[in-house]
Computed example of a mutant assay.
Amino acid sequence: MEEASVRPGWETLPRAVRLWVQEQAGTQVLEARTTAGGLTSGVATLASMADGQRLFIKAAREDDDTAELCRAEARAASALPVAVPAPRLRRHAEMDGWTVLVFDAVDGRHPSLAPSSLDLPVVLSTVAGLSDLLTPCPLQQAPAVGDDLAADFTGWQHIASTPPSDLDPWAQRHLEQLVELEQQSLLALDGSTMLHTDLRADNLLVSGDQAWIVDWSWAVRGAAWLDAAFLLPQLVLAGHTAASAETAMRAIPAWREADSTAITAFAAGLTGLWEAGSRNPTSPSALRAYRRRAAAAGRAWLRHRNPVWGGRRALTGRWR
């Protein structure tokens, strides 16, 4: 089972903040339940109100890194068109040393992305519709994805400078090629679509034939196919082969139109981020554990794609 951060509960919030939330709702909180999952350490509470309303409250101390993620999420959520299947942001406040967001709660559960899951077609259909709803990018201050990822897509370069003894043997054999691909990974990501960039099961909710996308903290502007590319390794983590995950992505028009070489370079950049991040001793243990698993999924994806070097497809034996 994937590790998750231990979240503080509703009662952690200052009394003034709890009273403010209830004032905004116009009624009292009857029950507050801390939600499971996620990789950050802020408050994430599902609140049942006395008049039947259900709210989702996110909060972080102003001196915590999570606070800036909350602010970014508030900006993104405020810009989303009504047609985008995402929770409505009711209020955002900075008070008593806390950043607080209040959303309408969504009735749903986190989907299974496993190969046989009935949730998967629902998720893919929702992701397929995002590019039409979010092009042009409605978030005016959204950073360009290349600028946002530039510092992060250097993982293989850092690893190559001092290769660790426990590096995966396949990655060790092809480290030079992975660095080369990583250096090309930002060249074809530009675009005018607002992107989520963190599509995982715990950022999705499903109810019947509807999927909802939550937590837009990492929203950027870029090529329309990128959210499918961020989602694909999550299918591998859920039990798909890389080949079946790529087949599933063909349900998304933007993916079908994407340049294959650009996808491969992006896969290298993303996998390098995870590989290097899994070795960062300053990161929370839950995040390092997730990145170890994600890096393995990324390597499987790269092995499947048989990248092109120097204009020629690499020999299968060289890559596998």
Score class of each variant (00 low, 15 high):
Ser78Met: 08
Ser78Thr: 12
Arg71Ile: 12
Glu68Thr: 14
Pro111Cys: 09
Leu113Lys: 01
Asp96Arg: 04
Ala76Phe: 02
Glu94Met: 15
Ser125Gly: 15
Val123His: 00
Asp104Ile: 04
Val123Leu: 07
Pro115Asp: 02
Val100Tyr: 01
Ala72Met: 14
Ala105Cys: 03
Ala72His: 14
Val100Trp: 00
Arg75Asp: 14
Pro111Gly: 01
Phe103Gly: 00
Arg88Val: 14
Cys70Val: 09
Ala74Glu: 03
Gly108Arg: 07
Thr99Gly: 13
Glu73Ile: 05
Leu80Gln: 01
Ser78Gly: 15
Val84Gln: 05
Leu124His: 02
Pro111Thr: 06
Pro115Met: 03
His92Gln: 10
Ser112Asn: 08
Ser116Glu: 13
Ala76Ser: 12
Glu94Ser: 11
Ala79Cys: 10
Ala74Met: 01
Ala72Val: 08
His92Pro: 02
Arg109Val: 09
Thr99Asn: 12
Ser116Cys: 12
Ala76Ile: 04
Ala77Thr: 11
His110Ile: 05
Ala74Asp: 04
Ser117Cys: 05
Arg88Ala: 12
Ser117Pro: 01
Leu124Ser: 02
His110Tyr: 08
Leu113Tyr: 00
Leu69Ile: 05
Val123Tyr: 00
Pro81Glu: 11
Leu101His: 00
Leu124Asn: 01
Leu101Val: 08
Cys70Lys: 06
Arg71His: 09
Gly97Asn: 08
Pro81Thr: 08
Met95Ser: 11
Ala77Met: 12
Leu101Trp: 04
Glu94Val: 14
Val82Arg: 13
Gly108Ala: 07
Ala67Gly: 08
Leu89Lys: 03
Ser112Met: 08
Ala86Phe: 07
Arg109Tyr: 07
His110Val: 04
Ala105Tyr: 05
Arg91Phe: 13
Ser125Val: 05
Ser78Ile: 11
Val106Leu: 10
Pro121Gly: 00
Gly108Tyr: 06
Ala79Ser: 12
Leu89Ile: 10
Leu69His: 05
Ala74Leu: 07
Ser125Asp: 14
Ser125Glu: 09
Ser78Ala: 15
Pro81Gly: 10
Glu68Val: 10
Ala76His: 07
Leu101Ser: 01
Ala79Thr: 07
Ala79Gln: 08
Ala83Phe: 09
Val122His: 04
Ser78Asn: 10
Ala72Gly: 14
Thr99Ala: 12
Ala114Trp: 00
Thr126Glu: 11
Ala72Leu: 13
His110Met: 13
Pro87Cys: 06
Ala83Gln: 15
Gly108His: 03
Ala86Gln: 09
His110Ala: 13
Pro115Trp: 03
His110Asn: 15
Arg90Met: 13
Ala72Arg: 14
Arg75Gln: 11
Ala76Thr: 02
Ala77Val: 13
Thr99Ile: 15
Leu120Met: 05
Leu118Gln: 08
Ala83Gly: 10
Ala86Gly: 10
Ser78Pro: 07
His92Asp: 10
Val102Pro: 01
Val84Tyr: 05
Glu68His: 15
Ala76Val: 07
Pro111Arg: 10
Pro85Glu: 04
Pro115Tyr: 01
Met95Lys: 14
Asp104Asn: 07
Leu89Trp: 01
Gly97Tyr: 06
Ser112Val: 06
Pro87Gly: 03
Ala105Val: 03
Ala72Thr: 04
Val102Arg: 00
Ala105His: 01
Leu89His: 01
Ala67Arg: 11
Asp96Ala: 14
Phe103Asp: 04
Met95Asp: 05
Pro81Ile: 13
Leu124Pro: 06
